[in-house]
Design a protein around this nucleic acid. Structure first.
Lengths: 150, 150
DNA sequence: GTATTATAAGACATAATAGTCTTATATCTT
DNA sequence: AAGATATAAGACTATTATGTCTTATAATAC
């Protein structure tokens, strides 16, 4: 799969946060229940996003997590790089450690072109895109019931 | 990383085979030495390709492996699907099991467009593309020395 | 037939990822 | 101040991916 499950969880959670009232702290437990993701696992993932200043958290009864800034200034690419690592978008598709200069792998040129589309999509799509429609919510309904068949 | 290391090995080996004289059986050991990949590991991967009729193998002193048919009729996509699984190109980018119909995930529409480029590239690029240039060989030189720093 | 050389198959070991659980700490409520 | 509630941090377990090793089997050479 293109993205690790940690990364997919991070994306789903971030999109969920973008759909909440701006600035509101959401309890992670609530969010997990709604997304069907294990609480203890997701909270660890969110801590990574926290350290990279993509989300903020607060303890205590009124605590929770929220986006660190406006949804339109957080991009899918930010989330992915935080979880998958900086080199996610630059690695050689065949895994050669020194691919690029002076030598490049057999797929290099063609792969760079395709990867361009990937990068454009991920770096131009912000979380704000998801805060004004309900597609994610529909899908979550679907997902929770699908989980039972797993 | 986009492709698992098993899959990258499979691709590199297939490209290597495409660069050999057509129909000639190549000893896997030789190939592994040349590519810097563990023999026992790669042979297991090649067995998968064998079962999917992408390569042929023969035992004995004159044995080895070779492409099962002309390099221009074996596509990168064939290799990837064999190793990563059929659903590699159809899975939801956020991991929702039922994404598509009737509901789709928040990234679905946009992801399908990007994925289109990926699929076109992988399904139009055959192994024959690599049998008439020496870029792969250059890279292999580079790689073997790079392995030592690993 | 016997030795040699190659792949086939599967057991085994290691590392990375995914997921769970427990304890600590900060914040709010009363 | 004390209890409740939420995240923080890290130990622990499970699963999967990766890699190694041993034994079996087939084909060739002699």
């Amino acid at each position: 799969m293109l993205l690790s499950s940690s990364c997919r969880y991070a994306l789903r959670a971030s999109i969920y946060l973008a759909q909440q009232p701006e600035g509101k702290f959401v309890a992670t437990k609530e969010m997990c229940a709604s997304l069907g993701i294990s609480f203890h696992y997701l909270i660890k993932i969110m801590q990574k996003l926290n350290k990279h200043n993509l989300i903020q958290s607060e303890r205590g009864t009124k605590g929770g997590i929220r986006l660190a800034r406006a949804a339109n200034s957080i991009f899918i690419k930010d989330i992915i790089e935080t979880i998958e690592g900086e080199s996610f978008f630059t690695k050689c598709v065949l895994g050669f450690p020194n691919c690029g200069a002076p030598d490049e792998c057999a797929l290099h040129k063609e792969w760079v072109a395709v990867k361009g589309n990937l990068i454009v999509f991920f770096s131009e799509t912000s979380l704000a895109y998801f805060s004004d429609n309900d597609r994610m919510n529909d899908m979550n309904q679907e997902f929770v019931s699908a989980l039972l068949n797993k």
